[in-house]
Design a protein around this nucleic acid. Sequence first.
DNA 1: GCGACTCGATACGCTGCCGTATGGTCTCCG
DNA 2: CGGAGACCATACGGCAGCGTATCGAGTCGC
Lengths: 187, 187
Amino acid sequence: MEAKTLNRESWLSAAFSALAEGGVEQVRVELLAKRLKVTKGSFYWHFRDRMELVEAMLEGWKTGRIEAIKAQTRLDGRTPAEGLRYVLSLYGGSNNPRGIAIELAMRDWARRDPRASEIVAEVDRERLRCVSDLFAGLGLDPDDAFARAYLFYSFIFGEGLLARSAAPDRFEKARDICGKVLVPEGV
Amino acid sequence: MEAKTLNRESWLSAAFSALAEGGVEQVRVELLAKRLKVTKGSFYWHFRDRMELVEAMLEGWKTGRIEAIKAQTRLDGRTPAEGLRYVLSLYGGSNNPRGIAIELAMRDWARRDPRASEIVAEVDRERLRCVSDLFAGLGLDPDDAFARAYLFYSFIFGEGLLARSAAPDRFEKARDICGKVLVPEGV
DNA sequence: GCGACTCGATACGCTGCCGTATGGTCTCCG
DNA sequence: CGGAGACCATACGGCAGCGTATCGAGTCGC
């Protein structure tokens, strides 16, 4: 972690932090350099230009997220319902704020950049497939299972968008009830 | 609409278009000037600086959205369930893409700007209150009604975030099923 | 018809960012 | 110990955006 010399990963890590905090617009080489306490001379050693960094971010995020969802939905002994509740807890509430921030920034990015849009689409397709399978494991037919997965992920991402104004316990209680609605007990 | 001289509203309108298309970062005075086919000399006549434009956008959006939600949830003869389905249809699918785009851009903005965050929080509070009342009209107790409203809005905004990759009919069907889950028929 | 006011054009300086060019300082290896 | 290569600093040109200053062209009251 405290290597005396930077590498591609160092820059990528800083880039994702900047992305989480300020969106794509904030991943600028001179800002990252300042954050890493070096000059951009270093950056242009490891990357050809900003475009290459950005492309590496997209590719890295894609493979990482696809691996993650596959691992998270591989139920080793768990029931499908437990698996769903587990996935829900991963992005839930105030756990994993960095993950949510990256997720939202990625999607805002995808709204204007076709390349990012393509990547997010691939990841979402995989996620919907995995979660849809879990719902199917609850006994739902394919259409219902897909719809449930669609609702499931819309809720997860939408929740990060909704302004949480004071009264945190009120929202906590709401989240619990939403969980029960999203992954039904007895189907 | 075709006034030969611009005013504050002209700039605000252009600013919201830019916001919808490219986020806050894209509401820049010189870009807006180009879009309006004038120079920024005009802008600095109507506004003190960029900050004033941005502030006007926040205030305008806030009052507009609060008025809108109040009007949309005022059920004149409609049943609460009909009212909920109506609100859902307003932001649903591919209706009102501009509205959704502004909504998402606003929220992405709110993630980094405290001022925007405050505005969005006020609007969301009002929306949750209105929709929560509709759910209460279905016979739900306050906690359940609020949770349903929370789920309702998370879905609406989250849906705009989810990448819709091909197979549009598949998503159409999913949306219908989601609608039935979100606003229950017989409670 | 004339001054005052409205609205916009032109031109300038400043800052932040990208990308390049070139030189400096380590480390490792033979 | 000496050269090669990895890694970074420094310095530069170029562009885009903000904000200011100043001037020009219409328009309205009187």
